[in-house]
């Protein structure tokens, strides 16, 4: 049975709509991405790149921290940005360079936190989202 052009267009519109629902163009509430990743490195350090985003309706100050697997802040990690003021809905790419410190495998957490302020007044709660990242060191 032949489909008319109108029927084909209708089917395509539904399909595209379904794909749009399943794959939204932007995750409005997303604060940190990716939230987990496995990386490899041949050097004494490994690199993890994440994207942070401000989900609030007003500009907010974002903080980024790196923790080891026991949730101790990793002082030896180097971040491209430790904090930034992001506009509403705006994002920023942050790169972390982390040493293996003699380990073959290392697991770290990278956390993005915001203490929301409204009209200059601070809230007493901080929202924090943490991703888990595992690195493996390979020898040449």
């Amino acid at each position: 049975m032949r489909h008319t052009i109108r029927q084909i267009s209708h089917i395509a519109a539904i399909t595209i709509g379904a794909i749009a629902i399943l794959c939204p163009a932007s995750a409005q509430a997303q604060l940190l991405a990716p939230m987990k990743k496995d990386v490899s490195s041949f050097s004494e350090n490994f690199i993890v790149k994440v994207m942070i985003k401000n989900p609030y309706k007003s500009p907010q100050r974002s903080y980024v921290q790196v923790y080891d697997e026991n949730w101790n802040e990793l002082e030896t990690a180097v971040l491209s940005r430790k904090f930034a003021i992001l506009g509403s809905g705006h994002g920023l790419s942050v790169t972390a360079i982390v040493p293996f410190d003699g380990e073959q495998k290392r697991r770290i957490y990278i956390c993005h936190s915001i203490v929301p302020t409204t009209n200059g007044k601070g809230a007493s709660y901080r929202g924090e989202v943490c991703g888990k990242y595992t690195a493996t060191r390979y020898s040449v």
Partner: peptide, 12 residues
């Protein structure tokens, strides 16, 4: 679709 978790503080 990557894993996501978001926390939005709505009131102090």
């Amino acid at each position: 679709v990557p894993d996501t978790c978001s926390v939005v503080v709505t009131r102090g």
